[in-house]
Amino acid sequence: MKRAGQGRPDADVPDLQGLRDARLVMVTGKGGTGKSTSASAIARLLASQGRRVCLAELDSQRAALTAVFGHEPTFSPEEVLPNLWVMNITWPESLVAWLRTMIPVGRIVKAILANDTVRQFLDFVPGSREVVGLTVMQELQRRFDVVVVDMPASGHAFSTLDITRSALGLFRGGPVRARVEALRDMLRDDHTRLVVVALPEDMVVNETVETLERFRDAQLLGGRPLVLLNRALPPSLTTPERIVMDRLGALSMGEAAGDLIAAGQWDLEREAATEDAVVRLAEAARVQPVVVSPAPAGADPARTAEHIAAQLGRAMGVGREEVAWT
């Protein structure tokens, strides 16, 4: 039996060096897998390595990073920990920044945006939000060593990045086309990495495999995506222990004893699901995930991010104290 967390001959080992050296890290995954806490953890980890990191959320009215850092990020990056800046790539501000990259005269940009009709036009142009958001990420790379982006859920994240392909048919000339080509090259760059956060649950693993396939088929990315298997429990029991556990599970016990046995079965179920997830990711996508155990119950988002950073750091060979949150 293969144990979770160990290498499988049919899967590529996680490209942690690629993550360590990345200049753009985009974090996605099915809803509820812990994208925002994982993105925060990666940003924290890279910052602890002495890199200047900007952690950005992609246009959310309800910034999920607020829960991690205690206050709402805005369009202007704010240093929250040493080497770590946090921001929200909000639409109106991004639009201004984007127009500035096209039209260098600030006064003209202002005049354009003062026109209501133009604003609605820009709102309506297909793909404008995606192109503008990606442009801001690209601009941020000039100011920071690495940009970590908390992307939308996988389906939406794919269409956001796929705009670099589909929009080429739409914009057949002009600076916007050149811009889209530059964004396409940014995604194909070897220093750009996609991280997909998954959980050891059938539906999540299925969606993760689908997401990896879509990205592979569309050839949008240069580097190999990294999969983070969050809230996973590697197997903890020997065969005799497992047999005893099964025997106990088959008995009808008093309330207290039954409660302990049920708790144990929850854990065992998660352990089995972790193994299944590792096998399925290897077989269907040739991917070996980085396995991250659940944070202690009741851990707040900051504590959870620290927990993930510590485990990811261990996989990278970084000491735990280096990624402490405070």
Binding site: P240, V244, D259, A263, D267, P296
Partner: peptide, 23 residues
């Protein structure tokens, strides 16, 4: 079962229960 199995299983159950209660 081999010696120590019971204690390890009970220990494991207890840890699982502590976490479930907190959760």
């Amino acid at each position: 079962m081999p010696e120590g199995t019971i204690d390890r299983v009970l220990g494991r159950l207890q840890r699982a229960h502590v976490r479930l209660r907190a959760l």
